[in-house]
């Protein structure tokens, strides 16, 4: 599925300063029953966000009108657990385009890149600075510049570089996906397949 190009994103942030936010928290298994990719944002962080009677939990950050934006800032080891791409879909559908953390689980990171969410890994110290900036001013903005691979806290001008491989970066900048690439390789793949021993 094609997605919007990602170039520069300047936005306020939603802070989630917890470690090990797993995919079952991002979207619990009971909300994986759809056969279409629609409406997953409604159940993003479902059990942290709503009580059993579906009333909002006031102390959860998504229910706090002070915080909004297209950037989710989360603690270490974000997205651990299941391979469910629904977790990335829920984050995207809710309106986030970027997640910043000091460490991502592998499968989540891959899924995010495949659907057009930029996972930005920063140092623990810089992550802390972002959390502090948001704490000081809920409207603090960050600027995520994919072309220059740099994230900046707008208010202070402090910035840090981030890693992304050239192939994925080009995909994100242009809104390309892997299937476009692989479809152009089918005869090479066909030849490879014929030589497989099983």
């Amino acid at each position: 599925m094609a997605y919007d190009k990602f170039t520069v994103l300047k936005s306020t942030c939603v802070p989630l300063p917890l470690e090990n936010v797993d995919t079952d928290q991002i979207i619990p298994a009971r909300f994986l029953k759809a056969t279409k990719r629609e409406g997953f944002g409604d159940n993003l962080f479902r059990d942290w966000r709503y009580n059993n009677d579906d009333s909002p939990k006031e102390d959860f950050v998504l229910n706090n009108p002070t915080y909004s934006g297209k950037v989710l800032v989360a603690g270490r080891n974000f997205g651990s657990g299941s391979s469910r791409e629904h977790a990335a879909w829920a984050i995207y559908d809710y309106g986030f385009r970027c997640v910043i953390s000091s460490f991502f689980a592998d499968i989540f990171k891959g899924n995010a890149l495949n659907i057009g969410i930029l996972p930005v890994t920063v140092s623990p110290a810089f992550l802390d600075k972002i959390f502090k900036a948001i704490e000081a001013d809920a409207n603090a903005e960050v600027e995520v510049d994919l072309h220059n691979q740099k994230v900046t806290i707008v208010a202070t001008g402090e910035s840090e570089g981030f890693e992304i491989n050239g192939y994925k970066k080009n995909n994100m900048l242009n809104g390309f996906d892997d299937i476009d690439y692989l479809q152009n390789m089918k005869s090479e793949i066909g030849t490879f397949e014929e030589a497989r021993p099983f």
């Binding site: 791409e85 499968i107 891959g110 495949n114 996906d177 892997d178 692989l182």
Partner: peptide
């Protein structure tokens, strides 16, 4: 993830 399931099916 599901995007990759689509990749494997198609290529």
């Amino acid at each position: 993830g599901t995007s990759e399931v689509e990749m494997v099916l198609s290529s």
